[in-house]
């Protein structure tokens, strides 16, 4: 038998290279927007950040300076309300879908409803919360904003929990049952804790998504220009504040809008990165202890 480099082999090698090239291009295309967004908001926004921006409230039009303390805290407050409502319900619903009554009518309807809910435009979610909570209370209020955000968070958490739990092989559940452990304990003490990382990541993803939403807050939490912690009163948030400042005719406000945009991106990225750091803390600890060892051995 002869082993020689045929034309066919070269052609096959070329095809292989070509498709590899296409995939690398696609990967770069995915990376480009995020890098550009961070870079652009950094260039435009970092300049307007100073201590005042974080500690002060807006100044009257015409006066330079002032900050967005109320909007930064407002965003955290609103997201906390939304998460407090949606995360427990979402995780429970996800567990129900993955672990109980897989083929029942209720779980099929629920599954379909979650797909629909994921697809509902966020402005519609805002209108719903407006009708539900703003109209009867006769005032824009933080609660309505929190509820609107919870509707954004809910389907993401539910779906993430369900998908993560479906990855747990059935023989793990059977092993638990075979030990004479009741089904609900197998689920809550073995299956769910084993998937904690994945569920936590899903929750964080949903929360950072909600932190950046503007539309559901426009006519629910509405926004204001002063510090407020009252759940029955309008509350400022970064996205709405950015929106209002950006469309204003005042240069100083437009400058601050960029600053707000930059802070918002940092918050969202920060949530993502810290959650990753938390779930990978063992790997981090290992990484640093390895690093220490290496440095020590170099010294010696």
């Amino acid at each position: 038998m002869m082993i020689e480099t045929t034309n066919y082999y070269r052609w096959r090698k070329f095809k292989n290279r070509f498709f590899q090239f296409l995939l690398i291009m696609a990967a770069i295309a995915v990376l480009t927007p995020i890098l550009l967004i961070v870079q652009y908001t950094f260039v435009k926004g970092a300049g307007s950040l100073n201590l005042d921006f974080f500690t002060n409230l807006p100044k009257p039009v015409g006066e330079v300076g002032g900050g967005m303390r109320h909007a930064i805290l407002g965003t955290l407050y609103l997201v906390a309300i939304g998460a407090a409502i949606a995360v427990p319900i979402g995780i429970m619903a996800g567990i129900y879908l993955a672990e109980f009554d897989k083929k029942s009518a209720l779980s099929r309807i629920l599954s379909f409803a979650i797909d629909l809910l994921t697809g509902v435009p966020s402005i519609i979610v805002g209108i719903f919360a407006y009708i539900l909570l703003v109209v009867p209370m006769k005032s824009f209020n933080a609660m309505a904003g929190g509820v609107a955000l919870s509707i954004i968070i809910l389907p993401i958490v539910t779906r993430a929990t369900e998908e993560i739990l479906k990855l747990v092989p059935d023989h793990i559940r059977e092993a638990g049952l075979a030990l004479g452990i009741p089904r609900w304990k197998v689920i809550f003490m073995i299956v769910v804790p084993g998937s904690f990382k994945g569920i936590f990541t899903g929750v964080m993803l949903a929360i950072s998504r909600a932190a950046g939403e503007t539309a559901p807050l426009l006519f629910t939490a509405f926004g204001n220009m002063y510090m407020s912690y009252r759940i029955d009163q309008p509350m400022a948030s970064l996205p709405v504040q950015i929106y209002n400042y950006a469309i204003s005719p005042f240069e100083d406000w437009q400058r601050q809008a960029w600053g707000g945009a930059f802070v918002l991106i940092i918050i969202v990225l920060g949530i993502n990165l810290t959650s990753r750091a938390i779930i990978n803390r063992n790997e981090l600890i290992n990484f640093f202890s390895e690093l220490k060892k290496k440095l020590n051995s170099k010294k010696a």
Partner: peptide, 28 residues
């Protein structure tokens, strides 16, 4: 549940509970 406490089972694929330590796997 009570039956399974009296009739244990070992499966084809080794399936220790992920996320549990060796100790906890035994006493879970």
């Amino acid at each position: 549940v009570l039956i399974r406490r009296n009739i244990g089972m070992v499966f084809q694929k080794p399936n220790p509970f992920p996320s549990l330590s060796i100790f906890d796997n035994v006493v879970i």
